[in-house]
Design a protein around this nucleic acid. Structure first.
Length: 328
DNA sequence: CAGGGATACGACTACCTGCG
DNA sequence: CGCAGGTAGTCGTATCCCTG
């Protein structure tokens, strides 16, 4: 008769299952749990046997979650993460102290313009907690989130996958920037046609912002003059300040210290929402919860149960949109 | 053929039970 | 109560087997 393994060791079964599901490999799950591959295989099999469901489809060396497996992962992941963060949560409750470390995934503009104030405040409040900013946006940022390397991500998001929760926090508007004294500098409003006589300094073509600008001009059957391409908002602002051209940027990069005139182009270009990007159902570490609290005091709830929006002081405008907007 | 999951089997350990 | 033997659970190694 076949032996029944791992009786009454549900959390171990679930850890093995979650690690295997996340890494799509029993061997890697074994490394994470400091066990051998057969042990993980047996743990998963015992779980399948007890639940009476196949959790993985096995194709030789490849494993993939079944529908039942995906359902179980949604249920099990918060339990496993909650179990693993128990010591930190316990210390926090006993001593009212936040411990651990904080990993945030964010793109360059978010790291440069949006996060510094929050990171500074966090470091003052919790100087003993090391903060790591992972320079990763888009799919790279999501990968860090899914692997658990990042506690959460901050930034805009183009399409929101099913397993991801996006909470918009700040919105930024498209802005025309010109050197001081430029013929357009004193205008309250400008049309796309007004821009045409002046050459533009633009981000490279692969940047999403550039794509949007090109599309909008095309939609109006207009052709702008390209003066130069430059990577990075700081570089573009510098060259506009020098009088080499004008540019269209997202207001996130304007800190107020620039010697530039700025005119809103909201009429023509979409705004951009920056917000909190979390994995659905993830239990945040105490440190992550505290940072999210700083970004929006009413957002301390776990992913999947975000509360109502508030308004915070400071330069970035709180996003007033009720629904997550797919930004461009 | 290589990589990786599945299986067989044995070692180790904890716990239970019976006996002195 | 303490010890010895039995039993069950866990995990490792070796090896098989399947798929790309």
């Amino acid at each position: 008769m076949q032996r029944v393994y791992y009786k009454q060791n549900r959390i171990k079964q679930l850890r093995a299952f979650c690690y295997a599901a996340q890494s799509r490999s029993m061997s890697r799950a074994a490394q994470q749990m400091f066990l051998s591959q057969p042990s993980i295989s047996l743990l998963v099999q015992s779980l399948e046997k007890e639940l009476g469901s196949r959790l993985f489809e096995r194709h030789g060396p490849r494993i993939a979650l079944t529908n039942e497996g995906r359902n179980l992962l949604e249920l099990a992941l918060p339990l496993v993460e909650g179990f693993e963060s128990l010591p930190e949560a316990f210390r926090e409750r006993c001593n009212n102290l936040v411990t651990g470390n904080l990993n945030i995934a964010a793109g360059e503009s978010t790291t440069l313009y949006l996060l510094p104030g929050f990171v500074n405040r966090f470091s003052q409040l919790y100087p003993h907690i090391p903060v790591t900013l992972h320079n990763a946006s888009g799919v790279d940022g999501l990968a860090l989130l899914r692997s658990g390397t990042a506690d959460f991500a901050v930034g805009p998001i183009l399409q929101i996958p099913e397993d991801i929760l996006f909470t918009p926090l700040f919105s930024y508007e498209p802005v025309l920037i010109t050197p001081l004294g430029h013929p357009l500098a004193d205008r309250e409003r400008v049309t796309l046609r007004d821009i045409l006589p002046y050459p533009l300094i633009m981000p490279p073509r692969q940047m999403s912002t550039r794509g949007v600008i090109d599309i909008v001009f095309q939609q109006h059957n207009l052709d702008y003059t390209l003066k130069m391409e430059a990577g990075g908002w700081e570089v573009i602002k510098r060259y506009v300040e020098m009088g080499l051209g004008i540019s269209i940027v997202t207001s996130i990069c304007l800190t107020g210290g620039e010697k530039l005139a700025r005119i809103s182009l909201r009429t023509y270009f979409p705004g951009r929402s920056y917000g909190l990007i979390q994995r659905r159902g993830k239990v945040n570490s105490p440190a992550a919860r505290k940072f999210i609290e700083l970004m929006g005091p009413d957002r301390v709830t776990e992913a999947g149960a975000a509360g109502p929006r508030g308004r915070a002081p400071g330069r970035p405008r709180r996003d007033l949109a009720a629904r997550p907007r797919t930004s461009l």
